[in-house]
Amino acid sequence: MASPFTDPAFYADRYPTYAALRKRSPVLRLPLDGGTGPAAVVTGFDQARAALADPALSKDTAAFFADRPSGRSLHPALATTMLNSDPPDHTRLRRLVTRAFTPATVDALRPYVAALAEQLAESWAPGQRVDLVEGFAAPLPVTVICQLLGVPTSDRQRIRRWSTDLFATGDHQRIDAASHALADYLTELVAAKRRDPDEALLSALVAVRDGDGDRLSEQELVSLAVLLLVAGHETTTAAIGNAVLALLQHPGQLELLQSGPHRIAAAVDELLRFDSPVSIATWRWAPGPVRIGGTDVPAGSPVFVSPGAANRDPARFPDPDRLDLDREARSHLAFGHGIHRCLGAPLAQAEIEIALRVLLERFPDLRLAQPVDQLSWRHSRLVRGLESLPVLL
């Protein structure tokens, strides 16, 4: 069977492919584009949840590719982020940044996020046609994470462009070029923060790098900055766009939220389950033989865990292709599971909730400006998100 990830139709609608794979087996070994051999693809909910937390699977991509020259020129700061590491390194690095994303910290950020969302929406008028991704879903989380890290306002458009290029599945030249541009920029920004520190998170990480105790190497510092910057907005942008599209396609559920705005916070989990912004989780592999959901995975095999597929598993969520905002969906895997669960999940949920609240209050007659089958989706294996979402306000 050919890799399903090379079919353009997959990026427009992944769920029929996931359902067909899961019907064959919740864990399948499939050909993988990129020359790394067959990969185990995990589409069942229970199997995905177990694999995401399985210490027998490694995220150390440097070790995987050590004896498999890829011919790539990805910047080392992106190839060795916290997301691509195992304990004890992962434990140490995550501990240094966890306090920036605690529920208390996020609660303190909520007024800023709400004011920003209102400001973005204020530039629009009822009856206007706008691109919801470009004008709202992208700038909201980009601005928040840049503000948190201390990225100058004038540089944020470049950050957004480089970050988008990093997820261009199959376009290795574009990805590698973006990795160098972003890492070089952040190396310079770190130097600037060292000369002139402020109250933002990046300056705090520089202080950890230069201080006593649990220190960061210079590459670890830049890698953390890259990861926080990219992960801090890409999936949230996708989630906001996906959520709005899902509601516009399900007018009954949209009316439910409009009649009871207090439901929005709880509805975010079902919207994340229904169309997860993380379609296939970041790279894992098996250093030794491992058994996943009854399937033997040989040593050296890549393992692709799909939260997008798992969240549509009927064994866990009955009638999974139906959007049901009354569904109990908090167990979804959109943010992952285990020690690598997204540490920015509280912030992402707050941003999605606030974005939906502002849009529904300001534009109760929001509707699509073009047919769904004409919408353009990002060509990314990892991120499930729209290139643009034209709407009429």
Rank of each mutant, 00 (worst) to 15 (best):
Ala12Leu: 11
Arg327Pro: 05
Leu93Asp: 06
Phe363Arg: 07
Ala369Val: 10
Ala266Gly: 12
Ser70Asp: 09
Asp89Arg: 15
Leu216Gln: 04
Arg24Pro: 09
Gly344Gln: 10
Leu120Ser: 08
Asp198Ser: 12
Ala281His: 05
Ala355Phe: 15
Val190His: 14
Trp283Tyr: 05
Ala125Thr: 14
Ala191Cys: 07
Leu182Asp: 11
Asp184Tyr: 02
Pro126Arg: 13
Asn311Phe: 00
Ala183Asn: 08
Val113Arg: 13
Leu382His: 02
Ala121Asp: 14
Asp214Met: 10
Leu109Thr: 06
Gly135His: 13
Arg158Tyr: 01
Asp214Trp: 08
Ile339Gly: 04
Ile280Leu: 08
Arg341Ala: 14
Ala348Asn: 02
Asp13Met: 05
Ser123Met: 03
Ile280Asp: 04
His379Arg: 15
Pro152His: 07
Ser376Trp: 07
Val391Ser: 07
Ala192Phe: 07
Pro8Met: 12
Glu255Trp: 06
Ala177Gly: 02
Ser203Met: 10
Ser179Glu: 09
Gly385Thr: 07
Leu109Trp: 10
Pro126Phe: 13
Pro346Tyr: 01
Arg14Glu: 13
Leu256Trp: 08
Phe101Cys: 10
Gly308Thr: 04
Phe5Gly: 07
Arg367Ile: 09
Leu96Lys: 03
Asp196Val: 11
Ser306Arg: 02
Asp324Cys: 04
Ala369Cys: 00
Leu368Asp: 10
Leu116Trp: 05
Ser380Asp: 09
Gln147His: 15
Ala114Cys: 06
Cys146Phe: 05
Leu228Asp: 04
Ala192Ile: 09
Leu83Phe: 05
Phe45Cys: 01
Arg161Met: 11
Pro111Tyr: 01
Arg29Trp: 02
Ala178Cys: 04
Asp269Trp: 12
Tyr11Leu: 12
Ala50Trp: 06
Gly35Phe: 00
Phe136Gln: 08
Asp269Arg: 14
Trp285Ile: 07
Asp210Arg: 12
Arg158Trp: 07
Ala12Pro: 03
Ala265Gly: 14
Ala138Ile: 08
Ala100Glu: 15
Arg72Glu: 03
Ile240Thr: 09
Ser25Trp: 07
Leu247Gln: 03
Leu166Ser: 09
Asp365Gly: 02
Ser70Asn: 02
Phe317Asp: 00
Ala246Thr: 03
Leu189Lys: 07
Val391Met: 09
Leu333Val: 05
Leu245Asp: 04
Val151Glu: 01
Leu356His: 13
His332Trp: 04
Arg316Thr: 01
Leu30Ile: 04
Pro251Leu: 01
Gly213Ala: 14
Glu353His: 11
His379Pro: 12
Ile240Asp: 06
Thr295Pro: 06
Ala12Asp: 06
Arg92Ile: 12
Val144Met: 05
Leu201Val: 02
Gly34Ile: 04
Thr80Trp: 06
Arg291Ala: 14
Gln374Ile: 07
Lys59Cys: 05
Leu32Gln: 10
Ser3Val: 10
Leu245Phe: 12
Leu140Trp: 11
Glu351Arg: 06
Leu366Ala: 03
Asp176Ile: 00
Leu93Trp: 01
Asp326Asn: 14
Ser223Tyr: 03
Asp196Ala: 00
Ala40Glu: 00
Ala104Pro: 11
Pro307Val: 00
Ala20His: 09
Asp210Phe: 10
Asp326Lys: 09
Arg384His: 14
Gly211Ile: 01
Asp269Glu: 15
